[in-house]
Every structure is written in C-alpha cells, then in structure tokens.
C-alpha cells in the first residue's frame, strides 16, 4: 500500500460503493431477522440480564474489531510513521480496555449486593473479604486508565495525519517548517 502519507484514495465512486455496501449489510441483517425470526415471535419479553449480555457481546465485537484492525495493519501496512504508531497504540489500548471492561462487567455481576458498603445509594467501600476476584474487579474499575490513553493516542494519530496532510497540501508548509 506504500507510505500512509501518500495513501490517498482516489475515487469518490469507490467511497459510494463502501457506503452502499454498509447499507446492503444493514439491509441483509434486517431482512434475515424479518424472514427468519425463529422463536422470537412478534413481540419478545426480555428478561433482566439480557441488557448486560448484549452489552458484553458488544464489548466482544469491539474487542475483535480492534484485534482485527491491528492484525490487518500489521499484515498489510497502509503506511509508516508516528501517526501509524499512534493509531496502532490507540487500537491496542481500546482492545485491552474492552477486555478489562468485559471482565469487570462479568465480575460485577457476580459480586453480591452486600459486598458494597452503602450510604444512601452510592457505595463507598467494597467490603471484605477482599478476594482475588474482588481485587481484579477493583483494579478493573479504573478502566479510564486504559480508554483515556487510547483516545489520546487516537487524537495524536489524527493530529499527526492532519499535519502530514497539511504539509502535503502545501497550505501549512511554512507554518511547520
């Protein structure tokens, strides 16, 4: 694919194709659900854990997506340079954050309500015994330690991409030189 700075897709028609493909995918999913409802029947009553399961599954999706994009970029590099490093780091942190979130959500669902010392609604402590699971849960709750750097690296990557594009275009050449 060559240098990322030169990786400029040259064709609006292909962009239109991409959008059309997304729409097609969406349409296919809807069509499958519509013609092949299984036992869902017309109206399905969802039980309590369903929201958590969907959320957990979406974490898995996110996780797999990040793993996939990292694999793809390592297998077929679209470019080289700091921006790409930042971007890969961002994806990596998001991947780890998703793993952490998935585990933390799972642990949280297994920790009994009495484990939290409450005053009013907001719990202030995680009561003993502090088991390994509870330690892991406690550590996992600091997930912003992972997602904030992930977002930070994404910003850095985009900023670097933007600077390169700016220079490439010649508009901001003087500013950066």
């Amino acid at each position: 694919m060559g240098d990322g700075r030169n990786w400029v897709f040259d064709g609006t028609a292909e962009l239109m194709n991409l959008k059309r493909n997304i729409f097609t995918l969406f349409f296919c999913i809807c069509t499958v659900l519509f013609v092949w409802p299984g036992r869902a029947l017309a109206i399905q009553i969802h039980s309590g854990p369903e929201g958590l399961y969907v959320h957990q599954i979406s974490h898995i999706f996110f996780m797999v997506a990040m793993a996939f994009i990292l694999y793809f970029l390592s297998r077929h590099p679209l470019g080289h340079g700091k921006a790409w490093v930042y971007l890969k780091l961002s994806f990596l942190f998001f991947l780890v954050w998703n793993i952490n979130a998935f585990i933390t959500h799972w642990l949280e669902s297994n920790i009994p309500e009495e484990a939290f010392a409450r005053r009013d609604i907001l719990p202030l402590y995680l009561n003993p015994p502090i088991t390994f699971a509870r330690w892991v849960y406690y550590a996992g709750k600091f997930d912003h330690v992972l997602c904030v750097p992930a977002m930070f690296f994404l910003v850095m990557a985009l900023k670097t991409f933007y600077r390169d594009a700016w220079l490439r275009s010649g508009i901001g050449k003087d500013m950066y030189e």
Partner: peptide, 18 residues
Amino acid sequence: GLPLLPIYIVDVVGASLM
C-alpha cells in the same frame, strides 16, 4: 474494605477527558 472513591474520581476525570 477497598475504598471506591478513587474509582469515582478517576471515572469523573476520565469521562471528562474522554
């Protein structure tokens, strides 16, 4: 027990940064 306040603080700050 393990205090949850640091978690809350990190949550607020982290979410804002996000």
